[in-house]
Design a protein around this nucleic acid. Sequence first.
DNA 1: AACAAGACCTGCATGC
DNA 2: TGCATGCAGGTCTTGT
Length: 275
Amino acid sequence: MPELPEVETVRRGLTGPLVGHCLARVIVRRGDLRRPLPADFAERLSGRTVTAIDRLAKYLLFRFDNGTVLIAHLGMSGRMVRAAAGTPPAIHTHVIFETDAGSAVHFNDPRRFGLMALTSDNRVHDHELVRHLGPEPLDGAFDGAVLSAALAGRAAPIKALLLDQRIVAGLGNIYVCESLYRSRISPRRRGASVAGARAHRLVTAIQEVLNDAIAAGGSSLRDYVQADGELGYFQHGFAVYDRAGEACPSGGPDHVIRRIVQSNRSTFYCPKCQV
DNA sequence: AACAAGACCTGCATGC
DNA sequence: TGCATGCAGGTCTTGT
């Protein structure tokens, strides 16, 4: 589910309830997530104060007063939902964080593709989960030259390459489709042919799409809600995602959005606008 | 090395 | 109503 804008929205929503607060109690109800939680997970976090919550691509980094860092990924169906302490956990709530202020955050993940791991401040960026990540798309260092260098020599379709977190970190299926539409680039185009002005256009489109989505609180499809339980509303702004058979927003005659499958994932695009 | 395809797990919509 | 099938926002591993 959650791509960069959704994770960023969750981060912002958790900052109020958690940052500056001590975790009075951490309850692991089910530890067999994508990677098993360490046996001492709850013990290592209990009594610690959250000093900051950062985002690295689609990962959340919870920093604690003793230098411990909790790395969390929401997978496809993971949610972090705010609740009052003592609220009975919903089905699929696997971990509960209760603060000294009487509020709680429930980690709920039906498919259990999410994960959490513990490390420390000085080792975060070397951690195996995040070590391979490419540039942050909203970072100033990410530009057309950086992107085309990463795409040089690549024969795979640009759609598949943009999903590769080593090339750019944080995009998923929705925002790749939307960015390619916005930059009028065909998802089937070979990676290496995206260079120069075309790469620049793509970077601009990626940044615009992500910023628009963050401003809208992310996209709510099946599972995603913000930390406060509110729905994001960027899904109403999709130009192509999940709109197969509908008219392309360009309004061009006979412009119909098409669905194809690439690398076993759905791709939505306008074959007339995107070349 | 680069790429494609399958696997992981659960819920939901669809069609018979 | 029940059952089978296919699909879903993400990685990770395996095989060519």
